[in-house]
Computed example of a mutant assay.
Amino acid sequence: MSVTAGATPARTSPAGAARHRRVFIPVLAALIALAWVALWAWARSPYGRYLEHDDWTASGPAAFLCRVVPAGDVVVPMALYAAAWILMTAAMMLPTTLPLFNTFDRLTAHRPDHGRLLMLLGLGYMTVWGAFGLLAHALHSAVLTLLASVPALAWHGWLIGTATIALAGAFQFSRLKYRCLEKCRTPLSFVIGHWRGERQARHAFALGAHHGLFCVGCCWALMLLMFALGTGSLGWMLLLAAVMAIEKNVRWGQRLSTPLGVALLSWAVILVATHA
């Protein structure tokens, strides 16, 4: 199936449009809401400390698993962190991908395996963010090890948070940010350019992963802010999710990048001034 042939189903019939409004949008909205509710419940449970990376193996079920699972001290924290990161990504990033899923839903609505293709698209997207989360976890662990081994740096731990905020602010002005953001803001041309309709399952997963790479390229610095602000802070999650959704989905959203960068850099300067 050619690209041109695959693009025509995007103009759906009135019945298809009604099905889209009645089924697809509520299901995606329910998944997003479920992810936020799960995060809220986890943060307020006795195991909420796992979201903040505190005492992963000191007590509770995680400590027991660390003792019984081979290499548990490494495997269990990584698995818990991966689960927390994927849940956080689903809550924060799925709203920003609504145009992508919307376009792909219309494009494949006539296929009998339409639902499976949508799931594979989402799986490919989340796989990329999961891999980024594991890299972020490794970086975070390395920073904690450095702080533990260098007491002088531990006394000035605020520098790491400030540097993260400054990095996120500076990245808002980078060419990579705008190139990736442009891909995220034009899902129709992205899908038409990458969807071939052959070997549908593999290509649907690859399409989601490819779009996820651009999404990571656009938002990685803002997501790293969660390490400076607290990965268990639902308030900051909501604020960052709203910012990223506006950047990608709203007509004037691209203009938000510059003032956001200025605000983050100014915040970093204020932190330096107050601690110096």
Rank of each mutant, 00 (worst) to 15 (best):
F24E: 11
L100Q: 01
G122P: 13
V27R: 09
L135S: 11
L80F: 12
H194G: 02
V250F: 14
H156G: 02
L167T: 11
A83N: 02
I160Y: 00
T97G: 04
L238T: 12
L31V: 13
A109T: 04
V250E: 12
T8G: 05
L229P: 10
L153D: 01
L153H: 01
F101P: 00
R19G: 08
A90I: 04
F64V: 15
T57E: 04
V75F: 04
L238Y: 03
D55C: 07
F227N: 06
H203A: 07
H140T: 03
A90S: 14
L107Q: 11
H194V: 00
L100I: 09
V69W: 11
A38D: 05
T127H: 04
A209M: 05
H20I: 04
H53D: 13
R49S: 08
L34A: 15
F101T: 11
A38I: 03
V69T: 09
V75W: 00
K183A: 12
A241C: 09
A166P: 07
C215H: 10
R179N: 11
T258E: 08
C184T: 02
L135V: 15
I32V: 15
G6A: 15
A170C: 09
Q172K: 12
V191L: 06
L188E: 09
C180Y: 01
F227V: 00
E182M: 13
A245T: 15
L144K: 06
S2M: 07
L134M: 13
T258K: 13
C184I: 10
A209T: 08
M78I: 08
L213S: 07
H20C: 06
A228N: 09
T12I: 12
A71Y: 15
R179T: 10
G6R: 04
L153W: 03
R179Y: 12
H203E: 14
Y178A: 14
T231C: 05
M92G: 07
V243L: 15
W42R: 05
A152C: 10
S233G: 08
L224S: 07
S257A: 15
W236A: 11
G122R: 05
I246A: 15
D54M: 14
A10T: 08
R19C: 00
I32A: 09
G193N: 13
D73Q: 12
T57K: 00
T97A: 15
S141Y: 00
M237S: 05
A38K: 05
T258S: 10
R22T: 11
M237F: 04
H53V: 06
A109Q: 14
H156R: 13
T12C: 12
E52Y: 00
G232F: 01
V262P: 03
F214R: 03
V27L: 13
A276Y: 00
A201S: 14
V3S: 11
E247M: 13
L167N: 01
M93D: 05
W42A: 09
R22D: 11
G217S: 07
S266C: 11
R11K: 07
D54W: 12
G212K: 04
A90V: 10
H194D: 09
K183H: 13
L176W: 14
H203V: 07
F132W: 09
N249A: 10
E52F: 01
